[in-house]
Amino acid sequence: MYRFADRLAPWLAGLCVLCLVAGLYLGLVVAPADYEQGDSYRIIYIHVPAAWMSMFVYVVMATSSAVFLIWRLKIADMVALASAPIGAAFTAVALLTGSFWGKPMWGTWWIWDARLTSELLLLFLYLGYLALRGALETPQSASKAAAILAIVGVVNIPIIHFSVEWWNTLHQPATITKFDKPSMHISMLRPLLLMVLAFQLLYFHNLMVRVRALILQRENRASWVAELAEKNHV
């Protein structure tokens, strides 16, 4: 598992940078301005990927927490723990960029509507998860309690997703999840999908790095870690 992560990481990083450069170029330079929102809509190229990742990472965290609770797989616990700070970062990005988009378009930095409030709750779930892991004395009980929190918190994900349909709000409805016919022109859609891919790769790369660090910390008595370390291969 460690070697696998070690070999995969540079490929993920390279692909991520490639998508990032292409996505930013196509999104900021090539794509036309929006006919209603002008150039301010270009915040979409980081806002939507970050918001998507904030939910995706949480689902990964909750799923691996469940796997850890059911099958006692240590690696699943590490994946959940490694995901939490990355997910929190994406959530913060989604909230901040949303705020800087809301100000010129809605005339306000923040409103307590369903979408924004549930996304803020997501940030607190991530932070609560990390706080819980830090607060409990024994690592085993911390893993278990945090896993339960992660699983319970997953009910928030469909609330975030459907909040723009269930409640009337300033927030615009989904642009790309309409599978039949996206309401976006291809010249705007292509960079958005590239940015989503770039953020996705950024997460997986970061996850590999953090999981490797956790493996080295926790398996410090394992003979293979010592062997690798002796050969300076870690």
């Binding site: 970062a89 660090a213 010592a226 300076n232």
Partner: peptide, 25 residues
């Protein structure tokens, strides 16, 4: 924010590596 988390993560890996090497020695 994203650069911050990337740097933080790679620092953690570096730290864990030096610790593992030191332990092995």
């Amino acid at each position: 924010i994203l650069l911050g988390i990337v740097i933080w993560s790679s620092r953690q890996l570096k730290q864990s590596r030096t610790q593992a090497i030191r332990r092995a020695q």
